[in-house]
């Protein structure tokens, strides 16, 4: 089968449209993953054994099961319970929660790496727990984590094609629909690969830059 540049030119706008949704899902998913990951990490450090254990199990469970099945679960089961999510919302929630279980480990390591003296100093200054977290611990713990977090966001970007399975019209489903309606698979599938590779290749030096920028000075 011959590579057809004319066809490539014809389908490129559609694919770029899909790429926009892909990037949007990644961005929203990353934000949710960062927030929920911090939440999981804090809950796992809770003083109540029951809360810490339950969170630990939930995190392990989400991490041990495939994202695709979780997406199906959000998309098909929740409406029966009366929670109606649009495909994109369900996708973003799925991506965000799935990757939150990974980022929670990053947050946990970052928080554990804060020197003991900082906790003691906060206590000596009579700060409340909230003040300690808000002004002492998190501002020191978060910058060294940024490269590791960004790594997971790139990984999440590569999993967004799964959203096409729950009818989100992103890059992969655009490619499949043009492929199916034109009976040409070579160009759409290859272009999807190329677009993913391009963005990943841009992300690699960006990650190195972040690593240099936020390298711990201690």
């Amino acid at each position: 089968m011959e590579w057809d540049w004319e066809f490539v030119r014809e389908i490129m706008p559609t694919l770029l449209d899909g790429l926009r949704i892909t990037l949007l899902a990644t961005l929203l998913g990353s934000m949710l993953a960062a927030a929920a990951g911090l939440g999981f990490a804090l809950l796992r450090r809770s003083k109540s054994r029951a809360v810490a254990r339950t969170t630990g199990f939930v995190v392990e469970f989400i991490r041990g099961t495939p994202l695709l099945v979780q997406l199906y679960f959000l998309f098909y089961v929740l409406p029966e319970l009366g929670v109606l999510l649009s495909p994109l919302t369900a996708g973003v929630v799925g991506l965000g929660l799935h990757y939150a279980t990974y980022t929670s480990e990053v947050f946990r390591a970052g928080i554990d790496n804060t020197p003991r003296g900082q906790w003691e100093a906060a206590k000596a200054c009579n700060l409340t727990p909230y003040q300690t977290w808000r002004h002492i611990i998190l501002p020191q713990a978060i910058p060294p984590m940024i490269p590791a977090l960004a790594n997971y966001f790139v990984a999440m970007f590569k999993e967004t094609p799964l959203l096409s399975a729950i009818t989100v019209i992103e890059l992969m489903s655009e490619a499949r629909s043009v492929a199916n309606s034109n009976y040409r698979y070579l160009e759409p599938m290859t272009l999807v690969g190329v677009l993913f590779l391009c963005i990943s290749l841009i992300a690699v030096p960006a990650l190195h830059l972040l690593e240099r920028r936020f390298r711990p000075t201690r």
Binding site: K158, E159, T160, P161, L162, M172, R176, M189, V192, G193, F196, L197, S200, L201
Partner: peptide, 9 residues
């Protein structure tokens, strides 16, 4: 660099 999904397809 490319996703498993794309490779499979």
């Amino acid at each position: 660099g490319t996703s498993i999904f794309v490779q499979l397809f």
